[in-house]
């Protein structure tokens, strides 16, 4: 998305939301010349508000990875897999909100890396801006 950020046009504010820690976010911003806003949602209230839950292990990682997941839980307990700033099962999504605050387009991923086609997102932004 970084490569096509200009195509969103000057009327749109693009915000990337993660639940990473402040230091990682600052490092990310310093590494990249961002054409968008990078934000944190440490308690994931925004994720929940937009209906973004957590995926199932089998759907997200497949059977082989699920077996590994179980092995790790047996060895380290669930705490070893769920650091506060990293959750491999968290689902993502993309949303376009118009100038009046109305949700005009949404994509709810069914896996953590399931993303919309960038062209669809750009088209939705252009529709919302006109």
């Amino acid at each position: 998305m970084r490569d096509r950020i200009d195509e969103f046009g000057s009327e749109a504010t693009v915000a990337l939301v993660t639940f990473t820690d402040p230091r990682s976010l600052a490092e990310y911003q310093s590494r990249h010349s961002l054409g968008f806003v990078a934000l944190r949602d440490p308690d994931r209230d925004g994720y929940r508000a937009f209906g973004l839950g957590r995926g199932r292990v089998a759907r997200v990682w497949g059977l082989r990875a699920a077996k590994r997941y179980v092995q790790l839980i047996r060895r380290d307990g669930i705490g070893g897999l769920r650091r506060p700033t990293e959750d491999p099962l968290q689902l993502g999504g993309d949303f376009v909100i118009d100038g009046e605050g109305r949700l005009v387009w949404g994509f709810w991923g069914d896996g953590p890396d399931h993303r919309p086609a960038i062209g669809d997102l750009i088209a939705a932004v252009r529709d919302a801006a006109h």
Binding site: T18, R40, F50, L52, V125
Partner: peptide, 30 residues
């Protein structure tokens, strides 16, 4: 859209309703 509030890299609040008047794209990643 839900009126959500996030934090920028400096810890300042960023509220969705403060962006009224412009189109906003929210991209949630893990």
């Amino acid at each position: 859209a839900p009126d959500v509030t996030f934090l920028d890299a400096s810890g300042r609040p960023w509220r969705l309703s403060d962006q009224r008047g412009s189109v906003v794209v929210l991209v949630f990643h893990r």
